Lab assay of single mutants.
Amino acid sequence: MMAYMNPGPHYSVNALALSGPSVDLMHQAVPYPSAPRKQRRERTTFTRSQLEELEALFAKTQYPDVYAREEVALKINLPESRVQVWFKNRRAKCRQQRQQQKQQQQPPGGQAKARPAKRKAGTSPRPSTDVCPDPLGISDSYSPPLPGPSGSPTTAVATVSIWSPASESPLPEAQRAGLVASGPSLTSAPYAMTYAPASAFCSSPSAYGSPSSYFSGLDPYLSPMVPQLGGPALSPLSGPSVGPSLAQSPTSLSGQSYGAYSPVDSLEFKDPTGTWKFTYNPMDPLDYKDQSAWKFQIL
Score class of each variant (00 low, 15 high):
Lys60Asn: 08
Pro145Trp: 10
Val23Asp: 01
Gly230Trp: 15
Thr44Leu: 14
Ser12His: 06
Leu267Asn: 00
Ala92Glu: 11
Ser235Gln: 02
Tyr221Glu: 01
Gly239Asp: 01
Glu53Ser: 09
Thr47Ala: 07
Arg91Asp: 14
Arg82Asp: 14
Gln104Ile: 05
Gly255Ile: 12
Asp130Pro: 02
Pro250Met: 12
Pro205Trp: 15
Tyr4Lys: 03
Tyr67His: 01
Leu25Met: 01
Val160Cys: 00
Thr45Ile: 10
Asp140Ile: 14
Pro240Arg: 12
Lys93His: 15
Leu299Ser: 01
Thr194Arg: 11
Pro125Ser: 09
Arg98Thr: 08
Ala200Tyr: 09
Thr44Gln: 09
Lys60Ile: 09
Trp294Leu: 00
Val160Asn: 01
Arg98Tyr: 03
Asn89Cys: 15
Asn77Ile: 12
Pro7Thr: 12
Pro21Leu: 12
Cys202Met: 07
Trp294Gln: 00
Gly122Val: 02
Ser262Phe: 13
Leu16Ile: 12
Val242Ser: 02
Asp130Ser: 08
Lys277Ser: 01
Ser22Cys: 07
Val66Pro: 11
Val66Tyr: 02
Leu74Lys: 06
Pro220Val: 14
Gln105Asp: 03
Gln96Arg: 03
Thr123Cys: 07
Leu146Arg: 08
Ser12Lys: 07
Ala68Pro: 15
Ala293Met: 11
Thr194Asp: 00
Ala293Glu: 01
Phe58Ile: 15
Ile162Asp: 00
Leu253Gly: 04
Asn281Asp: 01
Ser292Met: 11
Arg43Asp: 11
Gln96Ser: 04
Ser169Val: 10
Glu173Gln: 09
Pro21Tyr: 11
Met193Ala: 02
Tyr195Ala: 01
Leu16Met: 04
Ala15Lys: 03
Gln291Ala: 10
Val30His: 04
Ala156Phe: 13
Thr187Ile: 13
Arg43Ser: 15
Leu51Asp: 14
Pro250Phe: 13
Ala196Asp: 01
Asp65Ser: 08
Lys60Glu: 05
Phe278Asp: 00
Tyr208Pro: 01
Pro36Thr: 07
Lys277Leu: 15
Gln105Met: 05
Tyr142Ala: 06
Gly209Ile: 11
Pro224Glu: 02
Gln248His: 07
Ser150Asp: 02
Ala121Gly: 05
Pro127Trp: 06
Ser204Leu: 11
Val242Tyr: 10
Gln97Thr: 07
Arg115His: 05
Pro108Arg: 11
Ile162His: 00
Ser152His: 07
Asp24Gln: 15
Ser124Gly: 11
Ser223Gln: 06
Phe87Tyr: 13
Ala247Met: 09
Thr279Pro: 00
Glu268Thr: 13
Leu222Ala: 00
Pro227Leu: 15
Ser128Cys: 06
Gly274Glu: 00
Ser185Gln: 07
Val13Leu: 08
Ser169Ala: 04
Thr279Leu: 13
Asp271Glu: 04
Ser257Glu: 02
Ala247Ser: 01
Ala293Lys: 11
Glu52Asp: 06
Ser143Asp: 04
Glu70Thr: 10
Gly20Ala: 08
Asp219Arg: 15
Ser49Ile: 03
Val226Asp: 02
Leu18Asp: 00
Ser124Glu: 07
Ala189His: 03
Ser49Lys: 06
Ser141Met: 03
Asp130Tyr: 12
Pro244Ile: 12
Cys202His: 08
Ala114Met: 08
Arg91Met: 14
Pro125Asn: 05
Ala59Thr: 06
Ala56Glu: 08
Arg48Gln: 05
